[in-house]
Structures are given as structure tokens and as C-alpha cells.
Amino acid sequence: MFDYLPPLNDHNLPYPDTIHPIVVHFVIAMVLFAVFCDILGYFTRNARFYEVSWWNFFFATISIFIAVVFGQVEAGLAGPYPVAETTLNLHTILGWSLSGIIAAITAWRYVLRSRNPKSLPIPFLGVGVLLLGLVGFQTYLGDLLVWVYGLHTVPVVEAIREGILR
């Protein structure tokens, strides 16, 4: 069965480079912009910002599931060494959690939009700010995995293959 899989490159991937960060940056941008538009719409009383926010949440919900799937595949191929495993596990758990949280917030946003597309309650804005905190922490964990632990970078992949990192 494994004979049919493509060989892994020097990033330890079957394709040229990591896809997870590419997709996840769209999610980060869409969530940040959605919350920003909600806050801006609330203070300017311009309902057009709420519409922009809704569509950003909608596409962020779809995109985060794609990001999580590629994240799982790439985490499995990373061959994490013991020092990086705790951060990778926390990043994985929070990623799956955020996919559910963002989906729930989007569903709540849909209900609010259906009832009154021209206003948002303060608790929803508060949840948006909390969501920004979670996304920020998740981004920090992802940065650690790449910039500190070097997962999927050529020198680290070579060190893991040579048995230097265990």
C-alpha cells in the first residue's frame, strides 16, 4: 500500500511545501477582520460592516476545517521530537477546538443576522474579543513550532532523519 504514496521531500512532505500555514493565515485574517468589522459596525451603526463580518465568519468556518485537516497530515509527517511534542499537541487540541468554536460563533452569528441584520448584542462582541485571544495564542503556538522547533524545515528534517534529534 505504501508503494503508491509519493516519496517525501526534504521538508518531509509529499508536496513541495506546507499547506497548513497558507490556509490558516486566511482563517486568521478572516476572523480578525470579522471581529474588527463587528466592532466598527457597532460603533458606527453601519450595518454594512455586519454583512462583511458575517461572510468572513462563514468562510473562516469552512477554511479552518481545511486548515485542521492539512495540519493533522503535516503534524503526522513532521516527526516531532520530544521537546516539540507538547507544543504540537496543544496546538492540535486548540486547532480542533477552534474549529468547533468558530463554527458555533458563526451559527450564533447566523441566528443574530436572521433576527436583526442591523444590530449585534454586546455579549457577541465580547465573545469575538475572546476569540481573538484564542486565535492569538494559537498563532503563537504555531510560530513556536516553525520558528523555534523548526518543524518541516530542511535542517531539522535532516537532523531527525540522521537521528540527531530524538
Rank of each mutant, 00 (worst) to 15 (best):
Q72C: 01
F49I: 02
S99E: 11
A104L: 02
I93C: 11
Y81W: 10
S99V: 05
L125K: 13
T61S: 12
R113F: 04
I39W: 08
G95M: 02
V35I: 12
W96A: 03
P82H: 15
S114T: 04
I62L: 07
W96C: 04
E85W: 03
R113P: 05
L88M: 10
I122K: 03
T92P: 08
L90N: 10
G76N: 01
Q138T: 01
T61I: 01
L130M: 06
S99R: 03
T86D: 12
Y42F: 13
L125A: 08
F65G: 06
Y50C: 07
N56I: 04
L40S: 08
T92G: 15
Y50N: 02
G100S: 12
P121Q: 07
N89D: 13
G41A: 14
W54T: 07
N116V: 04
G133M: 01
N46P: 06
V69R: 11
T139Y: 05
L90G: 13
V127K: 05
V73K: 12
N56P: 05
S114Y: 03
A47P: 15
Y50I: 09
K118L: 14
F57T: 06
I102L: 00
S114M: 11
C37A: 08
F58P: 08
S53F: 12
W96T: 02
H91M: 07
V52G: 14
G79D: 06
F36C: 05
V135K: 00
G79Y: 12
F59V: 00
T92R: 15
V35S: 14
T87F: 13
D38F: 05
Y50M: 09
V31W: 03
N56A: 08
I105F: 08
Y42T: 09
T106L: 14
A75K: 10
I93S: 06
V127H: 05
F137K: 04
V31F: 06
L134M: 04
W55H: 14
L94N: 02
V135G: 00
N89M: 13
D38S: 05
P80K: 08
L125S: 07
I102Q: 01
F33I: 13
G136D: 00
W55K: 13
S63L: 15
G100H: 15
K118M: 11
P121R: 07
L132W: 03
L88D: 10
I102K: 01
K118G: 10
G136M: 00
L32T: 12
S119N: 06
I39V: 14
L77K: 14
T106G: 07
T106E: 05
S99D: 01
T106D: 12
G95T: 02
F65K: 10
T44H: 14
V83E: 15
P117E: 11
T139K: 08
G100Y: 10
G79L: 12
F57E: 03
F33V: 09
A75W: 05
G79P: 09
V127N: 00
S53N: 07
F43R: 13
S53L: 11
A34D: 01
K118I: 10
N56C: 13
G133E: 13
Q138M: 06
F49A: 02
P80W: 00
P117G: 15
Q72H: 07
W108N: 00
